[in-house]
Design a protein around this nucleic acid. Structure first.
Lengths: 116, 116
DNA sequence: TGTCATGTGTACTATATAGTATACATTACG
DNA sequence: CGTAATGTATACTATATAGTACACATGACA
């Protein structure tokens, strides 16, 4: 599933219930030209900037990190966290590359609950 | 410490022991024009691409992730790992943002040793 | 003392990124 | 049935990124 198709599908789904989710109106609310959003949805151009993707995620109630990932990007706040302690995070992330989802989830939960 | 100054310092340190670490020769080995490396070291232009930073790290025996961080970048292999499971990694990394170094180190070690 | 290597100033350049602006045919509906 | 909204084709544009090419003054050293 490409970024564009995903956006189109989810926008159309919302549009079925609410006419305010037309290309034109969504485009206006996220601050781009309708023609541009149309091209994005059809994959005619590359996905937009992080800022526009955030606005889009907000508008369509989608997960920002998932949309950014589909657009081939990583959230700038995550990049900043990594850049502040590059070795620590680089090592950990590469370790986790081959771990199953549940293991990563468990670590996140343990960290959150302070289980150290 | 900026990227350029860091590179200059470390290159000059190596040059003191080995004349092959002149701007010109290093530039040639990493595949850029001498004038360009000179400008990079003086902060006259932005840091180079990830590929050139990798070549530079290799040449100067420096940690790639640290150099990339100084250049305001995050290694593309890390980005790819995150993009494959965006929610999982986004959550975990944001959890770890406020954790001390030793906690992150310990997680990495536990994962490596399979202490689950 | 001549020449060879060194660092750098200046002037370009190609490609990617991130869009805008306008016009037009089609569809919906009051 | 007319008009208003819709999606899209086409043609541009501005800025950033990632460098090259060449000339020149200075210093090293054989």
């Amino acid at each position: 599933m490409t970024f564009g198709k995903y956006i189109r599908e989810h926008r159309e789904a919302l549009k079925a219930e609410d006419r305010r989710f037309s290309v034109r109106q969504v485009a206006q609310r996220i601050g781009v030209e309708p023609a541009y959003l149309s091209k994005i949805e059809r994959g005619d151009v590359a996905p937009p900037s992080e800022a526009k993707i955030r606005a889009l995620a907000n508008e369509l109630n989608e997960d920002v990190d998932v949309l950014l990932a589909m657009a081939g990007k990583v959230s700038s706040d995550l990049q900043e966290i990594i850049r502040k302690r590059p070795q620590l995070f680089a090592d950990l992330i590469r370790q986790l590359k081959s771990m199953p989802d549940h293991a990563i989830l468990r670590i996140a939960r343990d960290v959150r609950d302070g289980d150290w």
